[in-house]
Design a protein around this nucleic acid. Structure first.
Length: 302
DNA sequence: GCATGTCAAGTTGTG
DNA sequence: CACAACTTGACATGC
């Protein structure tokens, strides 16, 4: 089991910067690009630091923050890598990141946020989503990330119609996006059972989030969901990817959806132990939670 | 300096 | 019907 960290560290000196469209809009274009260039360059350097820290801690995967290049697809202040004064230096850093990740076998992924909705009935929402996916696939290509993971999106009162729209949009995506795209079961709308047919039909792997499955069950057992999702990965010859978290308020009462600081060992499925797979740890205590889980699992084995 | 409100985008579910 | 949750800062502003 390869354990992964999501986006941030709490104890390591790694931080990512961002900016807002509003702040940028007060500047003229040259100043905008200068500011963005500094931020992107900084973020690329911090991504190097992140991978070095991950390697040192024995973390085997890292999810890269969506706004690594903030506001890149914004209609007013958007830009491309070539527009940035430090573009060449950034490309150089990306090459270094890529080879470091390969050398130390750190798997990289992207997880666009909730605004990427391919099942939407609104064509502008879908068009913006595709543009965002193209941006992320460009970065993914540059740093060697093999996964861009998204949710099914909204239901709009008719799940099968929404799934049909999703299928149609996914099958028409550019190859640079499609070859990395994965679908994940969520905690309100789309379950493993809902997404499996789409994934099977389009040869898109399914990221199995066991916490979402427990919050939003579909009749499949954890073992069945793990196996069925695993087949979508085997079919494309890639290592299975799963997500894991523990409920902040426990399973007993209240809302189990918010994530706890650490992973409760009891929430790690029995059938995952010793299995060849990547597991992103979604926990508030970030790298400390990953390290603690590694220690738990290691201790358990002896 | 430090605290606080704000930030592109979508959808669902709750109060 | 309005607003928080998702997930979470970091930045900009104002004291």
């Amino acid at each position: 089991m390869r354990l992964g960290l999501c986006c941030l560290f709490i104890n390591e000196p790694v931080s990512f910067r961002t900016t807002t469209a509003k702040a940028l809009s007060a500047l003229d274009r040259d100043d905008q690009l200068h500011k963005l260039s500094c931020i992107c360059h900084d973020n690329a350097r911090n991504l190097c630091l992140a991978l070095e820290a991950a390697q040192r801690l024995g973390i085997g995967a890292f999810r890269i923050m969506s706004p690594l290049f903030p506001r890149m697809t914004h209609p007013d202040v958007g830009y491309s890598l070539g527009d940035l004064p430090d573009g060449d230096a950034i490309i150089h850093l990306f090459g270094a990141i890529r080879s470091f990740a390969v050398q130390h076998d750190i798997r990289l992924s992207f997880h666009p946020d909730q605004f990427v909705v391919l099942s939407s009935p609104h064509s502008t929402v879908v068009a913006n989503s595709i543009q965002e996916l193209e941006y992320q696939s460009q970065l993914a290509e540059a740093v060697g990330a093999d996964v861009i993971n998204i949710h099914g999106g909204g239901v709009y009162g008719d799940k099968s119609a929404a799934l049909q729209r999703l299928s149609r949009v996914v099958s028409a995506l550019p190859e640079s996006v499609r070859s990395r795209l994965t679908l994940e079961n969520d905690d309100t709308s789309y379950t493993v059972r809902d997404l499996l047919p789409v994934c099977q039909q389009l040869s898109i792997p399914l990221v199995y989030d066991v916490h979402h499955h427990r919050c939003n069950p579909d009749g499949l057992s954890v073992e069945e969901a793990t196996r069925l999702a695993g087949e979508t990965w085997r079919r494309v010859g890639r290592e299975q990817y799963c997500h894991l978290s523990s409920p902040k308020a426990g399973w007993g009462s209240g809302n189990p959806k918010p994530h706890a600081d650490y992973i409760d060992l009891a929430d790690v499925p029995e059938c995952w132990r010793g299995r060849e797979m990547t597991v992103d740890v979604e926990a508030k205590a970030k790298e400390r939670a990953v390290v603690r889980l590694m220690e738990y699992l290691g201790r358990e084995r002896t």
